[in-house]
């Protein structure tokens, strides 16, 4: 049995949820693995590793991105936000509350991906219609809910935000 030396590594800096982290990683390490296994931000999930399910969705400079399709090194210099950034002082955000009120999650495995997808989308398109929201929800997979309550949660959150402003 051998335990051979590791492959070549590189030092990178990631800006995640407003904190800067230095990481020594293999160049092939994906962003999602760096977030989950190096920074222990395990809220971001992995459902396919090939860019379809969206469980790994995070915000990269405000825009939803598949963290399984990016190398961690490619995210240097960008502001990354994960699901761990949504609640403040132990209070769920309005989006998170809408998900629980509408029963938009069951097993919760897809949920962080949908939350970050919606967070990025609503910031960009606060006036989105329900149909546009459905379009966006169609970019991620959920096996438990049948999607209806996810669409309703996001739509309700958007409507409430519009009322407040």
């Amino acid at each position: 049995m051998t335990d051979t030396a590791p492959r070549e590594r590189q030092l990178i800096t990631l800006d995640v949820n407003g904190e800067r982290h230095e990481l020594l990683i293999e160049p092939r390490r994906t962003l999602v693995d760096a977030l989950r296994h190096d920074l222990l931000l395990t809220g971001t999930h992995v459902g396919c590793e090939h860019g379809i399910c969206g469980a790994c969705t995070v915000l990269v400079d405000g825009a939803p991105a598949r963290a399984c399709l990016m190398f961690a090194a490619q995210a240097e210099g960008a502001r990354i936000r994960t699901v761990e950034s949504l609640a403040e002082d132990g209070e769920l955000s309005d989006l998170q509350r809408a998900f629980t009120e509408h029963h938009g999650l069951q097993c919760g495995f897809c949920t962080p991906g949908f939350l970050m997808l919606a967070e990025g989308f609503l910031a960009e398109r606060p006036a989105a219609t329900k149909e546009e929201i459905r379009e966006v929800v169609a970019s991620n997979l959920c096996r438990c809910t049948g999607y209806q309550t996810i669409v309703e949660a996001i739509d309700d959150c958007a409507a409430r935000r519009r009322k407040e402003t």
Partner: peptide
Amino acid sequence: VGRREDPRLLTGRGRFTDDIQ
């Protein structure tokens, strides 16, 4: 009744098998 599972799952503090180190 609101689901008691939700707060941890919504905040990324669930613990799934792959989250264990």
